[in-house]
Simulated scan of single mutants.
Amino acid sequence: MTITNALAGIAVEDIGEAIDFYERLFGRMPDARPINDVAEWKTPGGGWIQVFTDADRAGASALTLVVDDIAEELGRLSLHGIVPVAKAIGDFFKTAKFRDPDGNQIVLSQPQHGTY
């Protein structure tokens, strides 16, 4: 199999509340709203993050975002009222774990120098 791209899906109960959170997380409005219950953000690498209404699965999604400077992102997010529920430094990555309003897990991950 040759994978050329990826789409991450995050199930939420209230799309309006979720869009507010993810706009603050990503620092911008969605790149697409293909239908009322869906918002999408494109990543610089070409992938997409799709937030969609699915009350039965809301809160069970997980997303990891690789960032260049986790300290910078933590500072920016704190200005928007988004604070991590946990932080860790390992041999290969620095990470910060967040929860969206539905409880979905979002992890920011910065590779340690020389490991990526």
Rank of each mutant, 00 (worst) to 15 (best):
M29V: 13
P30Q: 12
P30H: 09
P30W: 05
P30F: 08
P30R: 02
P30S: 12
D31A: 13
D31T: 07
D31W: 01
R33Y: 05
R33C: 10
P34W: 02
P34V: 02
I35W: 13
I35T: 14
I35G: 00
I35Q: 15
N36D: 15
N36M: 09
N36V: 07
N36C: 05
D37Q: 06
V38Q: 11
V38P: 08
A39M: 05
A39K: 00
A39G: 08
A39Q: 04
A39W: 01
E40N: 08
E40G: 04
E40W: 03
E40H: 07
W41D: 03
W41N: 11
T43W: 05
T43L: 15
T43P: 10
T43A: 12
P44M: 01
P44D: 03
P44Y: 01
P44V: 01
G45Q: 13
G46A: 14
G46K: 11
G46H: 09
W48I: 14
I49E: 09
I49W: 10
Q50T: 13
Q50L: 10
Q50E: 13
V51L: 08
V51P: 03
V51T: 05
V51H: 04
F52E: 04
F52I: 06
F52G: 00
T53Y: 03
T53K: 10
T53A: 08
T53N: 06
T53S: 09
D54R: 07
A55P: 09
A55Q: 13
D56T: 12
D56L: 13
D56V: 11
R57Y: 11
A58C: 06
A58P: 02
G59T: 11
G59I: 08
A60D: 08
A60C: 09
A60T: 15
A60Y: 10
S61Y: 02
S61M: 02
S61A: 04
S61K: 00
S61V: 01
S61G: 00
A62I: 14
A62P: 01
A62L: 04
A62M: 13
A62Q: 15
A62F: 12
L63A: 05
L63F: 03
L63K: 09
T64V: 15
T64Q: 09
T64P: 03
L65P: 03
L65C: 07
L65K: 01
L65Q: 02
L65M: 06
V66N: 14
V66L: 14
V66R: 14
V67A: 02
V67R: 01
D68A: 14
D69Q: 02
D69G: 04
D69L: 07
I70W: 00
I70F: 00
I70C: 00
I70K: 03
A71N: 07
A71D: 14
A71W: 05
E72N: 08
E72A: 08
E72D: 12
E73N: 06
L74R: 03
L74A: 00
L74K: 06
L74S: 04
L74T: 05
L74W: 04
L74N: 01
G75V: 14
G75H: 08
R76P: 10
R76H: 11
R76D: 08
R76E: 10
L77Y: 02
L77S: 05
L77I: 10
L77G: 00
S78F: 00
S78N: 04
L79G: 11
H80A: 13
H80M: 11
